[in-house]
Computed example of a mutant assay.
Amino acid sequence: MTDPTLARANGRPFNEMRPVTLTPGVMKNAAGSCLAEFGDTRVLCTASVEEGVPGWRKSAHAGWVTAEYAMLPAAGNRRTPREYRGRKGRSMEIERLIGRSLRAVTRLDRLGEVTITLDCDVIQADGGTRTASITGAWVALHQALMGLVDAGRLPRLPLTDQVAAVSAGIVDGGVLLDLDYPEDSRAEVDLNLVGTGDGRIVEVQGTGERTTLDRAQLDALLDLCQGAVAHLTELQADVTGFRPAR
């Protein structure tokens, strides 16, 4: 299933992630922020807290967590035009994924009627921008929520767990973890997994880009991803100090 001789950038084995760095507190004026680096992919994640909730949410008597995602024009190997409202497509799909992922571990009923928006701006893209966005956005969200707790606006942190994400795929017939752009662009199968710190799955996005896959291959991809999510949540815990009761 996996060819151990398959050459990868920097000599990575099939089951190894790129170097990951999560740097919190990089934006002075944001309620929370994190620079998420997955190899050469870099995403700046910021959290903003605003009073009130969307009109359709008012009757819920709870808060809201949402996200926006964009790539800077020079993030990739060729200039990408800026995206304006009404011209979103792929970005809208990704920001909805980020929002769903963060809400899966947030007690909105304990948040109060405030809206927290996570802005994920890709400053350099080399594959896995959505997974880096989710992983970094959780760190920024944690920082913003801790600010509300420290200010006495919340009695306790309304997070039930961590959430992180990683990609995997089948490339040249082999199962690989955390695809960079050259691997992703020629992947036969592409999969993204969002998971929690206690090993639960929030969402799986998998597509046979150039071929189909069998159950054994799917299981291998899921196993790789869940192991990597455990690693990412440890990194999140290291930079935030968050350790939920298990």
Rank of each mutant, 00 (worst) to 15 (best):
T21M: 08
R42H: 11
D198E: 13
A164E: 06
P155W: 07
H61K: 14
N15W: 07
E37R: 15
V139K: 01
V53T: 08
A31F: 05
V49E: 08
S133L: 05
D121C: 06
M92A: 15
R186L: 01
V189K: 07
G208A: 04
P155H: 11
Q205T: 12
R153F: 07
D126E: 06
R57M: 09
E83H: 08
A75Y: 02
L72W: 01
M146W: 13
E203K: 10
A9Q: 15
G169R: 02
K58N: 05
R85D: 06
A30S: 15
R246W: 14
L235N: 02
A60L: 15
G128N: 02
R200Y: 06
R200H: 09
R8K: 07
D161M: 08
N192L: 03
V49M: 11
C120K: 10
I116N: 00
R78H: 14
V53H: 10
V166H: 04
L111F: 02
T211M: 13
D190P: 07
T106G: 10
A132S: 14
G227R: 07
L224V: 14
F38T: 12
A47V: 11
R103D: 11
R186N: 03
A168P: 05
R243F: 09
A144G: 14
M17H: 05
M92L: 11
S167Y: 02
S33P: 08
T106R: 08
T80E: 15
V49G: 07
P81T: 04
F242A: 03
I98H: 06
E37D: 12
R57C: 05
L218K: 04
Y69D: 13
L221E: 01
E83G: 05
R130H: 01
D126I: 15
R156D: 15
L222P: 00
F242H: 07
G99E: 09
L35V: 08
